[in-house]
Amino acid sequence: MTKVKITIGGINKDAGSSKEYKTGGWRTMKPEVDVEKCIQCLKCFDYCPDGAVKKTDDAIEFDLDYCKGCGICAKECPVKAIVMKVEEK
C-alpha cells in the first residue's frame, strides 16, 4: 500500500478511504447470481456485511473487490438465486 504523509494528531480527513483496501482477496468461495431467478428483494443487499452487493436494473451484482465470500447472501436468498462456488485463483 502506498504510504501517505501524516497529519497533525493523526486526523484522517479522507472519509470512506477504506474503499482503497480490497478485501476480495480473502475469499475462498465466490457468490454467483442467477439473474433469471432474482426477484430483487434485496435481502442480500441488507445482509451483506461488506457492502458488496449492488443493485442493477434487473437483478443484483457482486462487487468482488470487497466480497469476503461469507455466503450469507446465498443462505438468505428466499428464491435460491445465489450459489457459492469455489474461488478459482
Binding site: 470512506g16 478511504s17 482503497e20 478485501t23 475469499r27 461488506d50 461469507c70 455466503g71
Partner: peptide
C-alpha cells in the same frame, strides 16, 4: 464504507 477488516460474515458489519 467497504474495505473494512471485519471477519467474513461479521454481524457487526
Amino acid at each position: 464504507a467497504s474495505g473494512h477488516r471485519m471477519c467474513a460474515g461479521c454481524g457487526e458489519g
